[in-house]
Amino acid sequence: MKEQRKQIGMREVNATRAFFFIGGFGSASWAPLVPLLRTRLAIGDDVLGLLLLCIGIGSLATMPVAGALSARLGCRRVLAGAGVLYACTLLTIVCVDGLWTAVPVILAFGAVMGCIDVVINVAAVIVEQGIGRRIMSGMHAFWSLGGFVGAGLYGVWVGMCGLTPMVSTAIAAVIILVLTAVFGRYLIPYGGDAGPLLALPRGIVVFVGITAFIAFLSEGAVMDWSGVYLTAVRGMDLSLAGLGFSIFSAAMLAMRFLGDRTVQRVGQRPVAVGGALLTCGGILLVMFARADALLYAGFFAIGIGAANIVPVFFSLMGRQRVMPLGTAVSAVSTMGYLGILAGPAAIGFLSSLTSLQTAFGMLAALSLVQAAVGFYVFKKMV
């Protein structure tokens, strides 16, 4: 470990940040292609939904093994190769003209995305340990920043510059390739300790995975259902449907950039456990606030509270000894991603049985569970 510490400096930190950015940028560049595929393939919403599920299936296929792969090949090789494939599959998506061509391409894109998601977190844990100070929240902020930049640039290229989706996507792919070429050489050449190829969580990692599952479930639910909640439950105009999620996203991005400094000042436990409680309070404010200003303050509180929960727990993966680092991060990432897939569907199912108000109440209750589980994890590990 001492030898590794000497090899890690700001070049490795910035390279890891760049690949977090690439992950968010690529996922945001994919999102605008969904309506294009719907039109080009002449498919209905039911088939489109199954097509979108291929992203999740692809990611879940690689996430459980990506950590072990990084241990065997090293983070540099895995991420550099994945960066190239990310750009190529993104560009291929915009070229497909048949459903049976689209399915394997989108499965491959999801697989690469899942691999990047796991391995950059493995790299971030090792780099953070190597430089001896908190950087994990800032790393995750670069994923969010990549998402903002990717979505914003696509709108500029297509809406303001009049470029075709093909040209716009090609520019995005070139940006990914350039960043991969420039920063890939500075990634750490090793991964965590070698372990089993398939990551099945055990011990304290199970509880960390539960916190990640709830965090991503809540984030996915806010992303997909906040607009419906504002219009259907609160009776707001359709033009304001996206405002709640925009406030949530902006608060999360800002707090992640401030997260490392905050953790250093107040500690990991107050940030993670207190963040879950703040998230619960924000959801209750969204549910019961009468004034619109307080309602939007609720979305702001959810973003602030949720921002650093996952980064803090990923940092803890470097301290546990129950599982090798790579397989532990793979297991937690997989459980978190299952939360993203389950969240919107769970909200819809519960809403159909009861009401959307009750479904949001479930999110508040899960935040309390998250706080309790987080407290237990810190009691056992810190």
Rank of each mutant, 00 (worst) to 15 (best):
A194T: 12
P196Q: 14
L284I: 09
F148C: 12
P270C: 07
A215H: 07
R265A: 13
V149A: 11
Y190E: 04
A212L: 11
V208R: 12
A276Q: 00
M287S: 10
S246L: 09
L278R: 11
A215M: 10
L163Q: 05
C161S: 10
R185D: 09
S249F: 08
V263W: 00
A251D: 01
V222F: 15
V222M: 15
G209C: 10
A254P: 08
A199Y: 02
L187C: 10
T211L: 06
T262L: 15
A276N: 02
M160R: 14
V273C: 13
G195M: 12
A181H: 13
V156Q: 11
R256K: 11
M252I: 09
S218K: 05
L179M: 15
L198D: 04
E219Q: 02
G275T: 09
I210P: 01
I175Y: 05
A272C: 09
L197Q: 00
S246Y: 07
Y190W: 15
A276L: 03
C161E: 00
V182D: 01
T180Q: 10
W157E: 05
F183K: 06
F213E: 03
S218T: 13
G275H: 11
G203I: 12
M166C: 11
V286W: 02
F213I: 11
D237M: 07
V158S: 01
A215V: 05
Q264A: 15
Q264C: 09
G152S: 14
A151P: 02
M252C: 05
L230K: 05
I283K: 00
T211P: 01
V149H: 05
V182H: 03
Y229D: 06
V273Y: 05
L179V: 11
V263H: 00
I204A: 02
M255W: 05
I247Y: 03
G259Y: 00
I188F: 04
G227D: 01
D260Y: 11
L197N: 12
M223S: 13
M223R: 07
V182F: 05
G191T: 02
Q268L: 04
L179K: 11
D224A: 14
Y229E: 06
G162Y: 04
R185M: 04
G184F: 03
P189I: 07
G192M: 02
S168T: 15
G152W: 00
